[in-house]
């Protein structure tokens, strides 16, 4: 089902102050079967926007439509059958078992006692299989790792059988491989089941590589589009406005540091990989690496010797040279050299 956001304003009530407005006149759309990442800096209003989409907190203005129907007009029960939400709440309850958590996703469909029908049981099992947690059915939630736990929470959302799934920072606290796996899983879910999946994240590189569209939230508003569209328009860089970070065309974030001095890198063995690493080392120590062609006068020269097993740092002013065996020692030399300049 298509999700449409029409001209909404979001914010939250404050004590002893006016309502804090986070964003207004937002209009966005999420087509069926797409994975969308909501990006933006801390405090920009990602969670508030997700809560508005989930119908947990109503927007200050405007409408959120799901399949053309205003979610504000639905009862809590109707909403629960259309929107599943994975929140940032940490569940730390002893003896709670994995299949019990997933079975809770069936709550909008079961009676007052929560008894599962055969069909409910089948959906619970299927949801667990889909997130590859079938073997953990009877394990206690407490005994799982953060990544496994997040998979269980996603299985619970799956069991809720909704056309829209929202996740608030599902990859926070996860290591890099886990972050990719969770994002990949969400992508499979969106494409394989036709669900619309929107998740907030701080992980730009997974979002750029795996999402069909990004919503980049800044205090000025939300820019939406495919990752490449946002790179072309520069909207993705807007996230880093006022910080020394820049985004390379490959989607890699780099720290921009002004370098006063230049060092020349001479690669005698012509191993480009080692030369690139030497350039990185120089940059990390506050020098601008240069190739032979540029016209600047370098303050020193790094020579790569013995097929990259040794390095020589030569002071361009007096010709003193030091030889070292690894980048760690080279960096120490460069820092000393930089301090002396």
């Amino acid at each position: 089902m298509k999700l449409q956001i029409e001209n909404i304003a979001i914010g939250y009530a404050q004590r002893h102050a006016d309502t804090r407005l986070l964003a207004e006149r937002l209009s966005l759309a999420a087509p069926e079967g797409e994975l969308i990442a909501l990006l933006g800096r801390n405090g920009v209003g990602k969670s508030t926007l997700l809560r508005a989409l989930a119908g947990v907190a109503a927007p200050l203005q405007g409408r959120v439509l799901l399949g053309g129907e205003d979610i504000a007009g639905m009862t809590a029960h109707e909403r629960a059958r259309r929107i599943a939400f994975v929140t940032t709440e940490h569940v730390a309850v002893a003896h709670l078992r994995v299949h019990e958590v997933v079975a809770m996703g069936r709550a909008p469909y079961t009676g007052w006692f929560g008894t599962l029908s055969a069909e409910d049981e089948r959906i619970v099992g299927e949801s667990l299989e889909r997130v590859s947690m079938g073997a953990f059915r009877n394990k206690a939630l407490e005994s799982l790792s953060d990544g496994e736990r997040q998979r269980v929470m996603i299985a619970r959302a799956l069991a809720q059988d909704t056309p829209l799934m929202l996740l608030d920072e599902p990859t926070a606290f996860l290591d890099l491989p886990n972050r990719y796996q969770i994002a990949l899983l969400l992508r499979e879910l969106a494409h394989g089941t036709g669900k619309t999946v929107v998740f907030s994240s701080h992980d730009l590189s997974t979002a750029v590589q795996l999402c069909d569209a990004l919503w980049v939230m800044t205090p000025g508003g939300v820019a939406a589009g495919a990752p490449e569209d946002l790179m072309r328009s520069g909207a993705l860089d807007a996230m880093f406005g006022g910080t020394p970070l820049t985004l390379s065309p490959e989607g890699v974030v780099k720290l921009d540091r002004p370098a006063k001095y230049t060092v020349k890198i001479t690669d005698t063995a012509a191993i480009s990989r080692i030369a690139a690493l030497a350039a990185r080392t120089a940059e990390r120590c506050g020098f601008r690496p240069m190739t032979d062609k540029t016209g600047e006068t370098p303050v020193a020269e790094i020579k790569i010797l013995e097929e990259g097993r040794r390095f020589e740092l030569t002071d361009a002013r007096n010709g003193t040279a030091f030889r070292v065996d690894d980048f760690h020692a080279l960096a120490a030399l460069l820092r000393q050299f930089g301090d002396a300049l």
Binding site: A54, V56, A76, H77, R79, A80, R81, I83, A84, F85, T87, E89, V91, V93, L96, V101, M104, G105, A107, P108, Q160
Partner: peptide
């Protein structure tokens, strides 16, 4: 048990 946010999202 899962938290108020989760409970609300499931229609409680």
């Amino acid at each position: 048990l899962l938290g108020e946010g989760y409970a609300r999202s499931m229609g409680v």
